[in-house]
């Protein structure tokens, strides 16, 4: 695959969250699978994900949140994308989205309602994420 044809994906850890390990593992797996990855790293404001996706014509944004404030940080994320002309971009959230005694089903529903296409339960493996992308990204 040439650089020009590679599909671009934006990754990062949202908000004031510094848990970078899982995000980095994910980024490396994506690159190995042939994606062009724009890795924004830890402590990334929501707007920076969107700006990066606009310039690079990314087809998916993978938002990590581990520290327990993911729901707060991700509010309005889809709206930001729509605002920037990215209404159809694929959005995933993952990491450690469950807070307190909430069930995963409840948490997942919250994120899907916010406009994410998928939410990953804690401990989701990178291979699973690659399978999802292969299924969800429209053929080039």
């Amino acid at each position: 695959m040439t650089a020009g044809l590679a599909r671009t994906i934006v990754t990062g850890v949202i908000g004031s969250d510094t848990h970078i390990v899982g995000n980095r593992i994910l980024t490396m797996a994506l690159e190995k699978a042939g994606y062009k990855v724009v890795a924004l790293g830890a402590l990334t404001p929501a707007a920076d994900f969107v700006r990066a996706a606009v310039e690079t014509r990314a087809e998916a944004i993978l938002v990590s949140s581990l520290y327990g404030q993911g729901e707060l940080d991700c509010r309005g994320f889809r709206d930001l994308c729509v605002e920037a002309g990215l209404e159809d971009i694929l959005l995933y959230a993952g990491g450690n989205l469950v807070v307190g005694k909430r069930s995963w089903d409840e948490t997942e529903e919250t994120f899907l309602k916010m406009g994410f296409d998928r939410a990953a339960p804690p401990g989701t493996r990178a291979e699973t994420v690659l399978e999802w992308l292969a299924r969800d990204l429209s053929p080039a």
Partner: peptide, 9 residues
Amino acid sequence: AGGTDGGNS
């Protein structure tokens, strides 16, 4: 200007 290489055109 506009777009990264391979990005938005």
